[in-house]
Design a protein around this nucleic acid. Sequence first.
DNA 1: CTTAACTCGTACAGGTGCATACGACTTATT
DNA 2: AATAAGTCGTATGCACCTGTACGAGTTAAG
Lengths: 192, 192
Amino acid sequence: MTTASTGRRRRADAERSIARIVSAARECLSRDPNASIDDIAKAAGVGRMTLYGHFRNRKELIEAAMADALRAGEEVLSEVDLTGPAQEVLTRLLESSWSLVAESTALLAAAQGVLPAGRIREMHAGPAQRVEDLVRRGQEEGAFRTDMPIAWLVSVVQYVLHGAAEETRAGRLKPEETGRVVIATVQSILAA
Amino acid sequence: MTTASTGRRRRADAERSIARIVSAARECLSRDPNASIDDIAKAAGVGRMTLYGHFRNRKELIEAAMADALRAGEEVLSEVDLTGPAQEVLTRLLESSWSLVAESTALLAAAQGVLPAGRIREMHAGPAQRVEDLVRRGQEEGAFRTDMPIAWLVSVVQYVLHGAAEETRAGRLKPEETGRVVIATVQSILAA
DNA sequence: CTTAACTCGTACAGGTGCATACGACTTATT
DNA sequence: AATAAGTCGTATGCACCTGTACGAGTTAAG
């Protein structure tokens, strides 16, 4: 993103490096929010100096990784069929996005240590709005409960996903049953 | 714990220091899992060298803080009335322990970075067993669901508590409604 | 082919945190 | 009052991570 505003050209080669770095950042930070710049560069198969050539500091790198994860999320969400009862839409939505959200929790933790809270909320605005809209619609249909704050209903889904990812990683939940368990749990929480 | 096996006496003065250090460790690490030894010593109103006189290294200190938190947990749990339907027992149990568990999540995160996973599980064996027993009893009574692994049902409660603590700390959940929200959420998850 | 962009190693400076060593002062305990 | 235990400052060594500087080699793009 260094030579973005100059109007100058950017070599294809650099483009590839940036992509590999961002990808490696997402992977490393998802495993360990305290992963060092050096770890990430190594994982990207790139020298640390090359990384600094594209990202001035750790903060910029994490922001880019975050933005990339959110972009991937938006992409997945936009392909979900939103027609029909809220219950079913929710199931479809979870089926296609639970693993992505789950894997990004550690990345989010890394971001929280570096970026201001406002910036993070701002980046999440899109996806959060989508989920909130769905919950509200479910409430109006009488399918979802109304005895708790909407903000809580939205966040608790996040925490359940986080937990499922953690349990799966630790081997206490079989990968093939994680999806089913997540969906059943979330439905129980939201159901009226 | 340095002069534990020597059979020698320990001064009352040192006993007080140790208590203050462990208490400060719980408090600091609960706010920031990466709090430094120096931070903890300052919070305890004690020199860093005094701290090292009682705990050889960071790992030993964290283990002591963890043990203290769990001891407090055991104490609270042992006072809960276990008679009656599992539903009601669960409510009583959450009412008296949710805040404690919630506050200890960051401390747990600190421990996970230093202690082997096996040691942590071992320390949690007592409380975990208690909750698991209750869940199993609820299942036998027909009050709790049986379509998910018990281990998941037990852990998801933890994650909900963690989430509630986080949301409350961030000001997105009013402190006076946190208890109610937690209990309602957990009951929805466990109910058959 | 020429040039500018890119890669990447080495080196350095600044900061932080952990852990140990030494020594002097203070306080509980008998 | 005497002694051992405890407190605590200063200094030191080590390891790690961040970010910058310089410079030489490599490669894409015109």
